[in-house]
Nucleic acid binder design. Structure first.
Length: 491
RNA sequence: CGGGGUGUAGCACAGUCCGGUUAGUGUACCUGGUUUGGGACCAGGGGGCCGCAGGUUCGAAUCCUGCCACCCCGACCA
């Protein structure tokens, strides 16, 4: 039988769409731009949530929940914030339906118009800062370190499963601090948490940086981000962390009394990652046979497939499989023994490869005779025959090795597709022929940034945190520049 | 929201130009048998308001009008 999904090289975009659907991660919903996250896809998201949630708790944050609906008036309190989100808000105007008098189903009851319209949150700064006004009185109430797991809605023109959907799931952290320094330290700390998660759990190497003014979050003083590279060379922003200064404190009148009894506005941060990470995970590692999941995020880390003819054979294989399952589970490894009779082994191999299960153990009659099992790894597709007694230890180590290998493969890819460029012609040429990340000098003006993005479709992804001081000339204007910034075409 | 494309069985598509048998193929599904170390094979079977609503016609998947949905390309965005 033929392959389940198209090749990356033929049509990257189609490959992605098909993979998401065929691997059972998500599908389109009856509502335009929204998606149904299917059990397998949601299981991966839950793993991400578990790990991140732990990291947030370890850094002192608590979870809370704020409402989905935000009074329209809240939005207008922070000028930049409204401007940033006004164009993509869903608005609730009525609260009741009634039967159509002409018998054509239900209609909105015009009698039931809301006094004040409600905005479905595109992000929760406003409603949260409105609460903070009441929660914060004195320096003793600070810092306030809150996170929420929620859905948000941004009415997007063009959507793609996981990468950009009208409704998406995310976490948003919102903190308040006594000093600017403390808030800035929080902003950077959370950026580090995201980078750590991306690299060490998702196997996704990132560039940490600061957004230019034009790419900054609406209402922030400074936006930090992690940028990652997908296999088509395009950049994907995997997480953001914002230093809000006193913007929201002033807009919502959130003040605290200092030790000295003076009244001051508090300093804020917000930071988030979303189900977009699913898109990053898929596009960074997967291949033409399907998903490739890093073991730390794989809902099933090891699958055991029996190969047999008779019930007696199956019974003996099952005995071995059950002992492996028990032993591996006691080490915290998630194992599935697939003894379904409805599918053949070959079918199962292909299916688990499509789903990105990191390790497969096949046990057949020959193995039972020789005292061996066949162990296959998803990332390299290598197979090895291992003595039955060594299998558990081997698999346990292999999971680590796969996690490492997936990361270093992505890291190498990123290195190979990162270029340093010193003139505009070369810049355009590299973008056209190779793509990837380009480090180049920029004069620091929004005009130049806009021109470059207009002419080449590449944007400044960030000013890298590890930027080296280096005298140079802006590739576009020729004006002096003190360091290189990261350009790329982006998702 | 502008340009282009596509809507036919769960999925992928043919048939539409040029109207005329009972709307077809692959796959998936059900039954029986043989199979089982990389998506098995044979036989039989079920499944369609041909996107929706009008219109033209003796007759519409096919022609006309309107609407809707999805995909691709642009403008906007995590």
């Amino acid at each position: 039988m033929g392959k389940a999904i198209p090749n990356r090289s033929e049509d990257y975009s189609l490959w992605y769409n098909e993979l998401v659907k065929k691997a059972g991660l998500a599908e389109n919903s009856p509502v335009r731009g929204c998606m149904v996250i299917k059990p397998y896809g949601f299981a991966i998201w839950e793993k991400m949530q578990d790990i991140l949630d732990k990291m947030f708790k370890e850094t002192g944050h608590s979870n809370a929940y704020f409402p989905l609906f935000i009074p329209k008036s809240f939005f207008s309190k922070e000028a930049n914030h409204v401007e940033g989100f006004a164009k993509e808000c869903a608005i609730v105007t009525h609260y009741r339906l009634k039967n159509d008098e002409e018998g054509k189903g239900v209609v909105v009851d015009p009698e039931a118009k809301l006094e004040e319209e409600l905005i479905v949150r595109p992000t929760s700064e406003t409603v949260i800062w409105d609460s903070y006004k009441n929660w914060i009185q004195s320096y003793r109430d600070l810092p306030l370190l809150i996170n929420q797991w929620a859905n948000v809605v941004r009415w997007e023109m063009r959507t793609r499963l996981f990468l950009r959907t009208a409704e998406f799931l995310w976490q948003e952290g919102h903190t308040a601090h006594a000093t600017s320094e403390e808030a800035q330290a929080e902003t950077k700390q959370m950026l580090e948490v995201y980078a750590d998660f991306a690299e060490n759990h998702m196997g996704l190497p990132v560039v940490k940086g600061i957004k230019t003014e034009s790419e900054r979050f609406a209402g922030a003083v400074e936006t930090y981000c992690i940028e990652s590279m997908m296999q088509d060379g395009k950049a994907l922003q995997a997480g953001t962390s914002h230093f809000l200064g006193q913007n929201f404190a002033k807009a919502f009148d959130v003040k605290y009394a200092t030790k000295e009894g003076k009244e001051e506005f508090v300093w804020g941060t917000s930071w988030g990652v979303s189900t977009r990470l699913m898109g990053a995970l898929i596009m960074a590692h997967s291949d033409d046979d399907g998903l490739v999941l890093p073991p730390k995020l794989a809902p099933i880390q090891v699958v055991i497939v029996p190969i047999y003819k008779t019930d007696e054979e199956l019974a003996r294989i099952a005995e071995l499989a059950d002992s492996y399952t028990k032993e591996l589970r006691s080490k915290g490894v998630s194992v599935q023994f697939d003894k379904r009779e409805t599918h053949k082994p070959g079918w199962k191999f292909a299916e688990y490869e499509l789903k990105g299960v990191p390790v497969r153990i096949a046990i057949g009659p020959k193995d039972m005779e020789n005292g061996t099992v066949e162990i296959a790894r998803r990332d390299t597709k290598e197979k090895q025959t291992i003595n039955q007694g060594d299998a558990v230890g081997f698999v346990y180590n292999l999971l680590d090795e796969i996690q490492q290998n997936i990361f270093s493969k992505a890291l190498n890819f990123k290195k190979e597709n990162t270029h340093r460029v010193d003139d505009y012609e070369t810049f355009k040429k590299v973008l056209e022929t190779k793509g990837g990340f380009i480090y180049a000098h920029w004069d620091g003006t929004a005009e130049t940034e806009a021109k470059i993005s207009e002419e080449t479709k590449a944007t400044i992804r960030c000013i890298p945190l590890d930027q080296k001081q280096e005298e140079g000339k802006c590739i576009y204007s020729g004006k002096p520049s003190k360091g290189r910034v990261l350009f790329a075409k982006a998702y």
